[in-house]
């Protein structure tokens, strides 16, 4: 990384928006800096937790959507 490393770069790293070179440099820094690694670990854990929020709509709503789809045929116009 030619620019100065910032905490925001950790976020780009967690969300896999770094270049391959940046990724390697961040990983190098993480190995050498315990405090930074701790922050990374904490933020990455929360990010993984977020995947668990998975809400389901009701069957009723899904059926309405599917029925609507079956009821219209705009191609024939």
């Amino acid at each position: 990384m030619t620019k100065t490393f910032t905490r925001n770069d950790l976020i780009r790293y967690i969300y896999q928006e770094t270049t391959e070179r940046e990724k390697q440099e961040i990983e190098q820094k993480l190995l050498l800096d315990n405090k930074l690694f701790e922050e990374y670990k904490n933020l990455a854990e929360v990010s993984m937790e977020l995947d668990r929020v998975d809400l389901s709509p009701s069957e009723k709503t899904i059926n309405k959507i599917l029925n609507f789809s079956k009821s219209i045929n705009l191609h024939s116009a």
Binding site: T61, K64, I65, F68, L74, H75
Partner: peptide
Amino acid sequence: LLQETFIKAIKTIKSG
């Protein structure tokens, strides 16, 4: 809003 979202998608897809 979920229903509205999918209805909009259906209309877009079915109208080509």
